Simulated assay, not measured.
Amino acid sequence: MKPIRPKPYAALLLILTVSGLITYWGRLLYAGVWRQTEEAMPDLGGLARYLLGIIVLLASLWGLAHLNYRLAFRRWLLRTEARFYYWTWLCILAWGLFEVLQIRTEHEPEFVDENLLVTAVLMGFVIAYGYVADAFRTRREQIQLIQQKTEAELTALKAQINPHFLFNALNTIYNEAQRVDNEIVADLIQQLSGIMRFTLQESKKPLTSIEDELQFLEKYLALQRARLPERADLRLTTELDWDGQPAQIAPLLLIPFVENAFQYGISLVQPSYIELAVSVENRQLRMSLVNSLLPANNARSGTGTGIANTRQRLALMYANRHELRISQTTDSFVVELTLSL
Rank of each mutant, 00 (worst) to 15 (best):
R321A: 12
L223E: 08
D134Y: 09
E176Y: 07
T150C: 05
N115T: 12
P246F: 05
I4T: 15
P6H: 11
F84G: 10
V290A: 09
R227L: 01
E114G: 15
T329Q: 06
L21I: 11
P206W: 01
A128T: 01
I266W: 09
F216S: 03
A250V: 09
T305A: 13
T150W: 06
L217K: 11
A226S: 15
D134P: 02
V118M: 08
D331Q: 11
T155Y: 01
T23R: 10
T338V: 05
S292P: 06
L122Q: 14
F333C: 13
G53Q: 02
N298L: 12
D233M: 10
Q201V: 02
L61D: 03
A94C: 04
P295K: 03
D243M: 09
S327P: 04
R70I: 04
L200W: 04
F98I: 03
N291C: 09
A11V: 15
E108F: 02
N298M: 13
L67H: 05
G26S: 15
E108P: 01
N260P: 01
P6D: 04
Y273C: 10
I173G: 05
L200R: 05
Q263A: 05
I173R: 12
L57H: 04
V132R: 10
Q263G: 01
W62H: 14
T310A: 08
I255L: 02
E218K: 14
Q144T: 15
A31T: 01
I274P: 13
Q191N: 09
L276F: 06
I22Y: 13
T105H: 14
R286T: 14
S203A: 14
A299I: 05
A247V: 06
T150G: 12
T208H: 06
E259I: 08
C91E: 03
L207I: 04
E38D: 11
A169K: 09
S267D: 13
F216D: 02
L228M: 14
L58M: 04
L101E: 03
L61S: 10
A156M: 04
T80P: 11
L145M: 10
T17C: 13
W89T: 07
S288M: 05
E151D: 11
F165T: 01
Y30M: 11
G244M: 03
R235H: 09
S19N: 03
T237L: 08
A82Y: 14
G124Y: 06
R197A: 05
L67Y: 08
T238S: 12
I266V: 15
Y24R: 07
A40V: 13
H66L: 07
V280L: 01
P3D: 14
G53D: 08
L253T: 05
I54H: 06
Q270R: 14
S327C: 00
T88L: 11
N309Y: 10
A232L: 07
G194V: 01
Q215Y: 07
L57S: 12
R231N: 09
I189N: 14
P271T: 01
T172L: 05
